[in-house]
Amino acid sequence: MKKAFTQTLMELRGGAVVEEATNELNTLVAMVRDTGKAGKITITVEVKPFAKVQDALEVTGKVVATLPKEKESAEVFFPTVENNLSRHSERQTKLPGTSLADSSSAAHG
């Protein structure tokens, strides 16, 4: 009878590979929900001959998570005729008696 892959996976690094994959999956699910973008987890099991003992194999497990990037916030600026960036459009006429509160005066008021 073949031993289940999951049983071997549970034995790698004393169960640390499965614990790491579980933690990464939890993080991945949260990031996908937050960003609406996809991600993935890759579990690699490498098997190679163990040089010091005949008929023995060296087995390693590695977990790699590719998390979606969080959306960077963007702000709106308007280009001036001098090619600078301004918060205010030069084409927008100002209404008499109105002004935008800046953060320094709003903090003191």
Rank of each mutant, 00 (worst) to 15 (best):
V64Q: 15
E75L: 10
H108I: 13
E70W: 05
T35N: 13
V17E: 00
M31Y: 07
E58R: 14
K94Y: 02
V18I: 04
T8E: 06
A107Q: 13
Q7R: 06
T35K: 10
Q92L: 13
T93G: 05
R13N: 14
L95V: 13
L100K: 14
P96E: 11
E20M: 07
A38G: 12
A4G: 00
S86H: 09
Q92V: 05
R13T: 02
V53L: 11
T66N: 15
K94G: 01
K94M: 11
H88L: 15
A4C: 01
G39F: 04
G109Y: 08
A16E: 15
V81L: 14
E19H: 09
A74Q: 15
A65S: 14
T93S: 11
D34W: 05
F50I: 02
K3F: 02
L95H: 09
L67F: 05
E72T: 12
F50S: 03
Q54P: 07
P68Y: 03
T35V: 09
P96C: 02
E11R: 01
K62E: 14
A74V: 14
S73V: 06
E46K: 11
K71I: 05
L28E: 00
Q92C: 07
K2D: 06
V63Q: 01
A65E: 06
V29L: 14
S104F: 09
M1P: 06
G36A: 03
A4W: 00
H108C: 06
V63C: 03
V59I: 15
L95D: 07
A30I: 08
L67K: 10
P68S: 07
E72D: 11
S73D: 10
G97T: 02
V81M: 09
M1R: 12
N23P: 00
T22I: 01
G97V: 06
A65G: 03
T80L: 11
K2S: 05
E70V: 06
G109T: 09
K52T: 10
V45C: 06
K2I: 04
Q92S: 08
S103H: 10
T27C: 01
A106F: 12
V29T: 11
K62T: 14
L25C: 03
A38C: 08
F78H: 15
D34M: 12
K3T: 07
A51C: 04
A101E: 06
L28S: 00
A21V: 04
E11P: 00
A65R: 10
K94T: 11
V17P: 01
V18A: 04
Q7M: 01
I41L: 08
V81F: 07
T60E: 14
K40A: 12
E82H: 13
N23F: 01
S73T: 09
R87D: 11
T27A: 13
T80Q: 08
H108L: 14
Q7D: 12
D102K: 08
V17Y: 04
L57A: 07
E72V: 12
K94V: 07
M31T: 11
A65Q: 10
G15T: 03
M10S: 12
L9C: 01
S73R: 13
S105W: 06
L57P: 00
I41R: 01
G14K: 09
E19Q: 15
A4R: 10
S103E: 13
L9T: 00
T35G: 05
A38F: 08
